[in-house]
Design a protein around this nucleic acid. Structure first.
Lengths: 239, 239
DNA sequence: CGGCGCTTTGATGGGCCTCAACGTGGGTGG
DNA sequence: CCACCCACGTTGAGGCCCATCAAAGCGCCG
């Protein structure tokens, strides 16, 4: 299940935490790192489990879910390759991390990683930067949940996913006007991201398809045919 | 305008950043700190200003606003006494910090503080902890924006404000069943927090008043008469 | 074929938005 | 002192967007 990591061949090394810390810190991290595969649907960490572990996503997408006892829940974050996964200094929380797709992750045991954090301030510095960026992203997301229409929300989500799925290739690149990828989320999951119902998401996607702004293949395949129009729809309330 | 700080008499020292770092770091911070008064409505930092400064709130409340060119905006955070204010490693952002009430803040110049961060890893560690807590709070808020009804939202906001305004006295304390304080926000601002319209907020407050769960004085005075009922309403969709 | 999970599409209703009018309190200047 | 104003809050009436309920289509697998 776990194998020794070969960092030199890691596809996200350059842009992940490991690539942003000192050489010594990177070496120490590598010593306690193991690669793991995680099937879609598996919970990676939950509010109750004490022994948290930390990891870096190599391939795949993770949902962060805020779930309440009464059954309502809201996806409050998506994590993509190179993103750091885990909650240092964790207190009791209702947050749940679940694999949205099959994953490859680079995994660190909780205690080992926390010791390394203490020894290497630059790890903490990088985590601080990334956490601040997550906070910015969360606040952008909050605007969407509070103020955007259903159409804007769906357009925003598709763009946001596209930007992460296709990175480091920039979505704005003039070289191509069209982009294809597989959605990592079901309609239900998209609705859970957006504060909508799955039927509403489905209708909005149908609408975008009808306008020729996107196209969908059989299952989760998606093609963005008019990024400019999609970006416009993601920011203005009406057509 | 600015006066030398007397940390020994600071009312939030114990629970603020200064109180959580090493003695040496606290001394270095004190050397570059100045107290300032900020009138309600003043912008403390905005997306465009390069030279950010950092501060700790001593008294008063600050709104963090995500404002878009088309005029829509959403309050994405409230900051209370002892909270840290500022965005290290800031990039371009549409975020705006504005005084919701008159403030007393303890202010650090941007460059001085960033130098101190480099010299004292424990400052960064404390910032990381606080940023992670802000992220948790933001994700709780996201659930509210995505999934709660208007009534739940208003109840949640009143409770959240009460918990911060009355701290460190715990709201759950059995000693008192009723709590009074002045709301730091107008109806419009509350609506901006909750992703609602001000009329909706007004109606929900009227409803709570009618049930005897809260009482309002003439202006912004608020009394929570039945915390248990309010907490219940903040978590369950219907009555 | 038939069952299952996911998606799509339709019909209906409700919760909140929108627009509008009125009430209220605090400040100002005659 | 009080008329006036203005910002803010309250209350009412109507409509729209999205939730809800329902049913059918589609791809997959045994």
């Amino acid at each position: 299940m776990s194998v020794r990591t070969r960092c030199s061949s890691c596809s996200v090394r350059e842009i992940s935490l490991c690539g942003s810390v000192s050489n010594q810190a990177a070496k120490d991290l590598a010593r306690v790192a193991h690669q793991r595969r995680v099937p879609a649907g598996q919970v990676i960490y939950g509010g109750h489990q004490k022994a948290a572990s930390f990891s870096i996503i190599i391939t795949g997408v993770v949902k962060l879910i805020n779930a309440k006892p009464d059954g309502r829940h809201q996806i409050v974050g998506l994590q993509f390759p190179s993103d750091f996964l885990g909650r240092p200094y964790a207190g009791p929380t209702s947050l749940l991390a679940e694999a949205a797709t099959d994953l490859n992750v680079c995994c660190f045991s909780g205690s080992a990683f926390e010791n390394l954090m203490r020894d290497h301030p630059d790890i903490e510095r990088v985590l601080l930067r990334r956490t601040l960026e997550s906070l910015d992203a969360a606040r952008e997301w909050m605007f969407m949940l509070g103020r955007k229409t259903a159409q804007e929300r769906v357009a925003s989500l598709l763009l946001s996913i596209a930007e992460h799925m296709l990175s480091p290739a920039p979505v704005r690149s003039k070289a191509r006007q069209s982009f294809e990828f597989d959605l990592p989320l079901s309609r239900t999951e998209m609705a859970d991201c957006l504060g909508l119902r799955l039927e509403t998401v489905s209708r909005q996607i149908a609408n975008l398809k009808q306008r020729g702004i996107i196209a969908t293949g059989r299952t989760r395949a998606l093609e963005l045919r008019d990024i400019v129009a999609l970006r416009k729809l993601s920011e203005s309330p009406a057509d």
